Amino acid sequence: MTAEALPAELRRAIVQIARTPRLLVACDYDGTLAPITLNPDEARPLPESVGALRSLAGLHETTTAVISGRALRDLATLSRLPAEVNLVGSHGSEFDIGFIHALDDKARELHRRLEAELEQLVLDVPGVSLEVKPASIAVHVRRAEHEAGRRVLADVHSGPSTWEGVSTTDGKEVVELAVVQTDKGRALDILRHQVGATAGIFLGDDVTDEKAFARLSGPDLGIKVGDGETLAAFRVPDTVDVALVLGFLLEERRNWLYGESAPPIERLSMLANERSVALLTPDAKLTWLCHPGPDAPA
């Protein structure tokens, strides 16, 4: 498949955002970079998406990030994404491996109480599992019998979710209880502020990604993966199309920054007089010039 498989309006939007001075490219992991699997430990990102994210991160004034509900340590281990890609775990509450040390004693005690209570709620319910993270605990019901899973989710919402200091995030076949405020939209804002992005693109498939879509405005671009109601302006069917989007964005961003066939800098020639400096390509095309003086804008 090629980028032509993407809707024409989406392609035009990607071409436009690729021309922003400072670009932030962020996306969800499960269901976006990696297909949804029955066993979460088998969810591997598509190589084409990983390659595009890495190449985008290597471009001038371009930042890439993955904002996932997974614990940061698990996300790094499972995804094996290159170091150039920023990782944010636990729905935006983990920005680095040492995050657990930032929890105060009250939050740690609440976390221990949550774990004990949730272990009792899921006891003897086949297919339900707990994912314990540094600042939260996720209750997964994807592999449970439907009615049993609904009962567990209802018990969680009527029980521990109501506790003071607990923040609840609902996803597809999962509910996560955190002892800190978690929000993918907030994480997106933090990243945007850190890199001074003039526009951002976010791709996601889950209901938790809607908080990130809600923060997009102006030149930003939101892309929903799969079915369901969304605040995103555009939609693609699956993770294969995510790879197409990232690949097309890379091509357009690279072309805008460097030209379609930019020669390496060592092949450029410099011409100068006492007032101006210019760079010429091997075929004598003017590619850069500062005027009227050497300290003037190019």
Rank of each mutant, 00 (worst) to 15 (best):
R11F: 07
R11L: 10
R11Y: 09
G31N: 02
A34S: 14
N39R: 06
E42A: 10
A43K: 05
R44V: 13
L46K: 11
E48W: 00
V50A: 05
L53K: 01
R54C: 01
S55W: 00
A57E: 04
T63A: 15
T64D: 01
A65P: 08
V66P: 05
G69S: 02
A71G: 11
T77K: 09
L78W: 02
L81I: 01
E84L: 11
V88S: 07
V88D: 05
V88G: 06
G89C: 08
D96R: 14
D96M: 07
I100A: 15
I100D: 08
A102Q: 07
A107C: 06
A107D: 05
R108H: 13
H111W: 11
R113K: 07
E115I: 15
E117F: 00
L118D: 03
L123N: 12
P126S: 12
G127K: 13
S129Q: 09
E131F: 12
V132L: 11
P134K: 15
S136K: 12
A138N: 05
V139L: 14
R142W: 10
R143Y: 02
A148Y: 10
G149C: 08
R151P: 00
L153A: 08
L153C: 03
L153E: 04
S158E: 13
S158V: 02
G159N: 09
S161N: 08
V166L: 07
V166C: 09
S167W: 15
T169W: 00
K172H: 15
E173V: 02
E173G: 03
V175A: 13
A178C: 06
V180I: 14
D183T: 03
K184N: 01
G185V: 07
L188F: 05
L191P: 04
H193P: 00
H193A: 15
Q194R: 15
V195C: 14
F202C: 03
F202L: 02
F202V: 06
D205N: 14
D205Y: 04
V207Q: 13
R215K: 14
L216Y: 15
G218F: 13
P219L: 14
D220V: 14
K224V: 04
R235L: 06
V236K: 02
D241L: 00
A243G: 07
A243M: 04
F248D: 05
F248C: 03
R253F: 10
R254K: 13
N255Q: 10
L257N: 03
E260W: 02
P264C: 11
L271A: 14
A272E: 11
A272R: 11
R275T: 14
L280P: 00
P282C: 12
P282I: 06
A284W: 10
H291Q: 09
H291S: 14
P292V: 12
G293H: 14
G293A: 05
G293R: 12
D295N: 03
D295R: 04
